[in-house]
Design a protein around this nucleic acid. Structure first.
Length: 565
RNA sequence: CGGGGUGUAGCGCAGUUUGGUAGCGCGUUUGGUUCGGGACUAAAAGGUCGCAGGUUCAAAUCCUGUCACCCCGACCA
């Protein structure tokens, strides 16, 4: 491609709409354009990267024995109503009516649809196992789209679904996808971590996430460097606390005017947050649930949700807090509380003489002890792990990192096959539900995660596998005939060798061309300048500072061998 | 959805406090001088000041409403 002909423009100024470096670079490089919050157009250069990622995924899926098809993104409500997810997804699903008033949505994920369509093909155990996939647009009306394509409302997902006769079969299908995912992300040049994850709204018996470490990530993972344990932090088990052996003090009601938050209480009492127990009120599927953790800890709502087995868990509003406690927000405590359930983190019974809210505005109790002064309906692990907590497997200190989730694989079991009546006859002619797995990769997100992990102050650094073009030939002056002739010759040589090459034939100054080449992240560059008459060029790799002078043929040969790996 | 902030030319911004004919930089077009890391110069094109209503002789500026976008918190690929 000749740059002078390409639909292409870079920006010098940093767009105000972007915060994340990867997002800024995508915009500056002219690879994406925003159409609405969380909705983006991929421009030609960006679309090339996207297609390369798509092809890597397609190749690995096919190699793993999965078969590609395409469902519709426009879907009738019936299927999701049948599984109950029409309500579960709620406003995150883009719903509307057709001209006849029938409910439709734009598909956010397709478990139901695949189970429904495949039921006709999988009536016998002989038809299995099967893994089917599609690469298709998905729609989720996110509460908060963020960071460009990291979290957007329309995105492309590769979603695969496996169908087996039993759990043992599922384990095999799952492992194949697991291996294929590793190859996909390896080939994309990503440094990823695989962690155990919560199954959430998807349901099922287990799942793993493919995570990219990044400060802009929405997830936190906990991992252990000594034994290799790695889990989504919302799942990571907390250690049992050491019981404190201080003598029990007397309970005392203390007037604490205007001190509702832990911070205010700490300065009021001159104690540390560890001396407090905070009581948070939640509404879980309509019931009032109080949850208690030590003052410096964070409640892990996923753990709480899983423990309660509820679908909806929300922090209670001021009105509900007042009803349950009889006080303003900030003074809730276990003594005299009106809640359907009271759950204490397992650390709480080990604590001695702590402070809690008195369920009365401006009052707290001090010297409180579990069992002597109150008991809860449940004691369990409901707090968030912290850096330095012992690893649940080996006891060494855990590390925590923020991550971007680029892939997620689930062992679904029979949840959707039962709901959608995706049944087969086994060898004894007994009807059974298919055992399903589902496997997703976010393509746009993967593309941006690569940038997040691979860029410098000058721009993007694409790995060869996904670069929009592998090489760019830059004649320093387009007006110089000797330079242009040599540039054309090398450009042709690269193209003939099957290399995706760009020729920067624009009438621009050298600095502009160099800056643009760096910004858009082309891995290999050939500069043609002063020594063009001698057939000498400069070869520069994007990630390296220094260039080297080579004969034109040799530079081309270097690139060809590098790209072919 | 809660909290904070911003809407003025393709992009980045000033002007709003104190109403009085719409500005700057980048980019774009044309000419000249330049030419190995985002050149200089001269001229030019480009704006319903987010939208609607109101106050006023007069509104980017004041008032009311509304929409959009960004950032911080609860969910997902």
């Amino acid at each position: 491609m000749r740059l002078s002909q390409m639909l292409f423009s870079t920006q010098r100024e940093v767009p105000a709409e972007a915060e994340a470096q990867s997002h800024v670079l995508l915009l500056k490089a002219g690879m994406i354009r925003r159409l609405a919050t969380g909705v983006y157009a991929l421009m030609p250069l960006g679309f090339r990267v996207f297609k390369k990622i798509e092809n890597i995924i397609r190749e690995e899926m096919d190699l793993a024995g999965a078969q590609e098809l395409i469902m519709s993104a426009l879907l009738p409500a019936d299927y999701y109503q049948q599984s109950g997810r029409w309500e579960v997804f709620g406003t995150e699903m883009i719903k509307f009516h057709d001209r006849n008033g029938r409910d439709f949505c734009l598909g956010p994920t397709h478990e139901e649809i695949f189970a429904h369509v495949l039921r006709h093909e999988l009536q016998s155990y002989k038809a299995m196992p099967k893994t089917i996939y599609q690469i298709q647009n998905k729609y989720r009306d996110e509460r908060r789209p963020r960071f460009g394509m990291i979290r957007c409302r329309e995105f492309v997902m590769k979603d695969a679904y496996s169908f087996d006769v039993d759990e043992a079969g599922l384990d095999i299908s799952y492992k194949k996808m697991y291996d294929a995912y590793c190859k996909v992300f390896d080939r994309c040049g990503l440094d990823y971590v695989i962690v155990h994850a919560d199954t959430g709204a998807m349901g099922g018996s287990g799942s793993q996430e493919f995570m990219i470490k990044s400060d802009i990530g929405d997830d936190t993972i906990a991992y252990c460097l000594s034994c290799g344990y790695a889990a989504n932090a919302e799942l990571a088990a907390c250690p049992d606390a050491e019981p404190e052996d201080e003598a029990m003090a007397a309970v005392e009601k203390v007037h604490t005017p205007n001190a509702g938050t832990i911070e205010e209480l700490v300065s009021f009492f001159g104690k540390t947050p560890k001396n407090f127990v905070k009581t948070l009120l939640y509404i879980a599927d309509g019931k009032t649930v109080a949850a208690m953790v030590r003052g410096d800890r964070e409640i892990n709502e996923t753990k709480l949700k899983n423990y309660l087995g509820c679908i909806n868990l929300e922090l209670a509003g001021p009105a509900e807090v007042r009803r349950a406690t009889g006080a303003q927000v900030g003074f809730a405590g276990p003594i005299g509380l009106d809640a359907d359930r009271l759950i204490a983190d397992k650390e709480v019974p080990c604590m001695r003489n702590f402070l809690v809210g008195a369920n009365e505005t401006d009052y707290h109790y001090s010297g409180v002890n579990y069992e002597r002064d109150f008991v809860t309906t449940d004691v369990c692990d409901i707090r968030m792990v912290e850096t330095g907590d012992p690893c649940p497997k080996c006891g060494m200190a855990l590390k925590l990192d923020k991550t971007i989730e680029v892939g997620h694989i689930f062992k679904l079991g029979t949840k959707y096959s039962v709901a959608m009546e995706c049944l087969f006859l086994d060898q004894e002619a007994k009807q059974k539900p298919c055992v399903m797995g589902s496997y997703g990769i976010g393509l746009n997100r993967t593309m941006q995660a690569i940038i997040e992990q691979s860029h410098d102050e000058d721009g993007i650094i694409w790995p060869d596998s996904v670069a929009p073009y592998n090489a760019i030939v830059v004649p320093v002056s387009a007006a110089n005939e000797t330079q242009m002739a040599l540039a054309e010759k090398i450009y042709k040589e690269l193209k003939d060798a099957g290399i995706d090459a760009l020729l920067d034939d624009r009438d621009e100054r050298a600095g502009v061309k160099f800056k643009d080449a760096d910004l858009i992240g082309i891995p290999h560059r050939i500069n043609i300048g002063r020594r063009a008459a001698d057939g000498i060029v400069e070869y520069k790799q994007r990630q390296k500072k220094a260039a080297q002078e080579l004969k034109a043929d040799e530079a081309a040969a270097r690139i060809i061998s590098a790209v072919r790996g």
